[in-house]
Structure formats: C-alpha cells, structure tokens
Amino acid sequence: MIKTLLSGDLPRSRLLSGLLVLILATLAAAPLLFPGAQAINTAAKICVFVVLVASYDLLLGYTGIVSFAHTMFYGLGGYGVGLALYSWGPTWASALAGLTIALFAGLALAFLIGLFSLRVRAIFFAMVTLAVASAFAILAAQLSSFTGGEDGRSFRIPELLRADALIELPFVGPITGRTITYYVVFLSALASFLGALRIVNSPFGRVLQAIRENDFRAEALGYRTIFYRTSANCLAAGMAVFAGALNSLWFRYTGPDTTLSFAIMLDILLMVVIGGMGTMYGAVIGATLFIVAQNYLQKLMGAAAKSTEALPLLPHLLHPDRWLLWLGVLFVLSVYFFPTGIVGKLRQG
C-alpha cells in the first residue's frame, strides 16, 4: 500500500523515513498543534513550497534542465486564482476558472519556451527563461490597473474557507474555515507530491533521467529528447501554477514580491540543492528546513544575541538582521559537506 503510494521509490534510509514521517505528521496535525498564526502560516507555506520545489526538481534534478522561469509559472497560478477571485467575486467557480486559465497559459508558455529553446544548448535555454521571467515580472508590476502593480491584490476567498466560517464536524467539533483552507492546501500538496513521485518513477521518468545522463545516447535509442524535455517543462510548469494557486488561496493575497521575484527563484534553487537534487524527497526536506529557518532563525538569533550581550562582537554577529548571512553560511557548508544534498547523504548511510 505504502509502496504503491510512493510508486516503489522508498526513502531507503531509516533516518530519512523518520524525518519524512515527522514532517508529514506535523504538517497533518499543524492546526491542532499550533494555535498561533505564524506557525500555521509557516506550515501552509511549507506545503506550497514542497509542491513548487518538487516540480523544480523534476526539471533540474531529473531532466537536467536549468530554468529560471519557475517563479513565473508560480506567479501565473497565484495571479490567476487571485485576480479571478478579486474580479469575479469570491466563489468557487471563479477560483476554478482562474486556476484553469492560469494552467492553460502556463502550459502554453512552457510549451513555447521549450519548443523554441530546448533544442539548443542548456545555457541558451537558461538565458531565455531568465529573460521571459523578467519580462513577465515587469509586466505584472506595470499593468497596475489589472494586477495591482507593486502592491499586488488582496481578495476574499469562498465563504467556506473564511476565518469566520464555523463548521460543525461529527466527532471533531467545530472547526474554522481557516482550518478547512489549511487542509485543502495540505491535501492538495500531498497529492501533488505523490503525483510527482509517480511521474519520476514511471517509464517516462526514467527517460528523463536517461536524457539528463546522456542525451546523445537517449536519442540514439530512439527517444526524441525534444519531446521529453518539452513535456517535462510543461509538467513542471503545471505543478508550479498549481502551487501558486494554493499560495493565493492561503494568503488571500497575490503580488510580485511573494510569487514573481527573483529572490524566490533563488530560494527554490537552494531548497532543491540542500534537499538533494533528483530525489523528490529532497524537496520535502529542503523546503521544510529552509522555510523553518527563514521564519525562526531570526527569533533564535534574537534570543542568542540577548544571551550573549555581555560578550564583545558576538551579539553583533548574532543580531537578527544578520540572519541571511548565517543562512548563507549554512548553505555553503551544506553544499560543501553534502554535495548530493541531505537526502543523498542520508542514503549513503
């Protein structure tokens, strides 16, 4: 049963299995465990990023394609659902319509980018994605009457999902719409992740790996590499659109800084690399670690700075404003010591 759900691709490390079960259990029980808004926001963000990072791993880790346009697709999903709810009212129909439009737009864009530039050298593809993504981000910021410009758009979500909605469930008691929204996000993320795991462990997924390993040989076996690369690009884009939609649903806001910025693209890259490229489980580990660090490292450092107040220099280094510096140090160390990522390291035993 578990083997079928995981498509036969088991974690293959006790520690890794333990970590994954811990993360899954914590995320599943998050609304019960943490009453605070920050904790539940962090949990939801982890769910969204697991999907986003897993889709990027499909591209980078499995197919060997370096793309910088992943946030564009993420943004398409975010804006698609966000603007639909904003303009057409907070109904399920408009959310679904927004998602559908964003999915089609994302797939079309991914298909075009793939078809025109995946034939040529990898560096060229990376540059094209960078250019298209930048253009898209500028467009989103400039079309302010439509997208809300730099400020983005806040919107209302369907009634059932709002914080003031109270639903009586048998055996459980009353739960708020916020909790329902969380479980929508959590279960969608879980399903998407298992879907991605199935894709990479399908015959198609093995061809992607073959292309990553030796595209020349894959071609000589009769696999049209352009078809497989473009398909992978479209699948990853579709998943990123979906992640963006989940993000909008949870935060009830969409804007360039939360979905389209290059900083997020870098975060995604870091999460894939820290977790372990080409492992899928690396997406879970990488996203969880990174987002927890992003949200709690500052607090931790604040406390550390306070406790070392008496010492010279140290409190300055530990000042919460320096959290990015320490994150950078952690990143350099992790890449140096775990070149295959945390999952790769754990699997080595």
Binding site: G8, R198, N201, S202, P203, F204, R206, Y223, F227, L235
Partner: peptide, 12 residues
C-alpha cells in the same frame, strides 16, 4: 512505452 507517466517503471 516511454511516454507513459502513470504506470510504475518497476511494474512491467
């Protein structure tokens, strides 16, 4: 069978 994304690689 390379384009099949739904079945498991180890099930054939």
């Amino acid at each position: 069978g390379g384009a099949n994304i739904f079945s498991r690689w180890d099930s054939r």
